[in-house]
């Protein structure tokens, strides 16, 4: 499965677990408009760390937080490529 599909699957899984209504997920969707809250993103990042062995928020020296779904996916792609 490619990275983007894995990430989207985690968004969907966490939304189900936390009983949140997940909106449309396109590359330009703003993360905070996706229906997930901070706690949901925290859980997504923890689960992705378990699956991928990487947490780009902590690992990278990048000081910018991803704002859109596309940026979030790229954040992980860059970390995986590093």
């Amino acid at each position: 499965m490619d990275l983007q599909a894995m990430i989207i699957e985690q968004f969907e899984q966490v939304a189900r677990d936390q009983e949140k209504k997940l909106g449309r997920l396109a590359p330009d969707t703003v993360l905070l408009d996706s229906g997930l809250d901070s706690l949901c993103f925290a859980i997504v990042v923890a689960r992705l760390e378990d699956e991928l062995g990487v947490d780009p928020f902590t690992a990278s020296d990048d000081v910018f937080f991803p704002v859109t779904v596309g940026e979030f996916v790229k954040f992980y792609e860059d970390a995986a490529a590093a």
């Binding site: 925290a42 990042v45 923890a46 928020f57």
Partner: peptide
């Protein structure tokens, strides 16, 4: 507690 970059901990 598990360290987390979004909420500090989970």
């Amino acid at each position: 507690s598990r360290k987390n970059p979004i909420t500090g901990a989970l």
